[in-house]
């Protein structure tokens, strides 16, 4: 264990613990934009700078491990000034269209600007101008809002193992893009969208949605493959308008293209809304009572004439445990046969 002090408080941490991690265990908040707990730190945004006694200039706390006897100061007039300057530089090249931004109210940059009371910018001048080029149906990139924190690059490479994007060019020309600035062509897992601290990346299908105060959020499990990722459904007017996953779930907030962007079937206009009975080759809408009666009579008649073994039931790997248990019980206890299966083999 390594002993040190942060803002005068004693702390003992494991070797390799960064100053940022150590400070957070003490409940000391240090602003960051590029740091993400599941990604390797790069010290890119410079907002997490702290002072260390004996060192001539501040260091980034996300990349500096605590060493023995370190005396760390996380806030001082100097640190505050430097952070404000960094923030000014970032905001000088960031559109301030917050009221119309998809992330307005849920933006890390906005939060930090609020914290430092940013109103006017000291650095007027040239701004980056980009035209939107995305042809894919999943992810929208608003590169003018990109602060080059590099989280998307990291998550794509480290978590997803794809490396579809990287930082190209230098200095003011720097931008995050696919090789040769081609259109985005990747697995469209949307991990990059989930870690983007600003409105630079968004799901195309939730643009101009998801800002209502009466939005409801419900935690549940993804309906696609057997992995069983935890998802959160965002609901507005009885419609699922967005899917996210929380960082503290077992799947660490990561999802795939189906889990994150494949929810529109829920509110599809094709959904069946009334029971149907086929008469003369045509489906007719009927009441539940009529449908129940019809099915029960048919099945009871067939059972009486040919025996229970002439009836079979196919249950669903899409349904819940409770429904599957009840379904096989119906086939076994009510119909009286073991002809019950589901698509495990298919």
């Amino acid at each position: 264990m390594i002993k040190a002090t942060i803002d005068g408080k004693d702390i003992e941490v494991n070797e390799g613990t960064t100053i940022l991690e150590a400070a957070r265990t003490l409940g000391i908040s240090i602003p960051t934009l590029c740091h993400h707990p599941k990604l390797t730190p790069i010290g890119g945004c410079r907002l997490c700078i702290v002072e260390i006694k004996g060192l001539p200039r501040p260091v980034t706390s996300c990349t500096t491990p605590v060493t023995y006897g370190m005396e760390i100061t996380t806030s001082s007039p100097l640190i505050s000034d430097l952070r404000k300057s960094m923030l000014d530089l970032i905001l000088s090249d960031h559109p301030l269209d917050c009221p119309a931004c998809i992330r307005g109210g849920d933006c890390k940059l906005q939060d930090i600007a609020f914290m430092y009371g940013e109103k006017e910018n000291r650095f007027p001048g040239e701004r980056r101008v980009y035209t939107r080029v995305d042809v894919n149906p999943f992810i929208s990139r608003d590169m003018e809002k990109c602060i080059l924190c590099g989280r998307c690059v990291k998550v794509c490479s480290e978590v997803q193992g794809v490396g579809a994007i990287d930082i190209a060019y230098k200095g003011f020309e720097s931008k995050i893009c696919p090789p040769y600035e081609k259109p985005l062509d990747c697995e469209f897992c949307g991990q990059c969208v989930s870690v983007c601290p600003t409105g630079a990346l968004a799901g195309k299908m939730w643009i101009r949605k998801d800002k209502s105060r009466d939005e409801k959020r419900v935690d549940t499990v993804c309906p696609y493959c057997g992995t069983g990722c935890h998802i959160t459904l965002h609901i507005q007017d009885n419609k699922v308008i967005r899917v996210t996953s929380k960082e503290d779930t077992w799947n660490e907030g990561w999802l795939c293209v189906k889990g994150r962007f494949g929810y529109k079937f829920i509110n599809s206009p094709d959904r069946l809304k009334k029971p149907l009975i086929k008469r003369d080759g045509q489906f007719q809408e009927v009441s539940w009572e009529e449908a129940y009666d019809y099915v029960a009579k048919k099945l009871n008649d067939i059972k009486a004439e040919y025996g229970a073994e002439a009836i079979g039931g196919l249950s669903s790997a899409r349904c819940t445990n409770e429904e599957n248990y009840a379904f096989q019980k119906m086939i076994r206890a009510a119909v009286g046969t073991n002809n019950v299966d589901h698509c495990a083999r298919l």
């Binding site: 993804c222 309906p223 057997g226 069983g228 249950s315 445990n321 073991n338 019950v340 589901h342």
Partner: peptide, 19 residues
């Protein structure tokens, strides 16, 4: 064995199986 559907494990556990 990685199961392909959200609740194929549960449907099997619940004995939506003929044997």
């Amino acid at each position: 064995p990685l199961r392909g559907q959200n609740n194929v494990q549960g449907a099997s556990d619940a004995a939506c199986l003929p044997n």
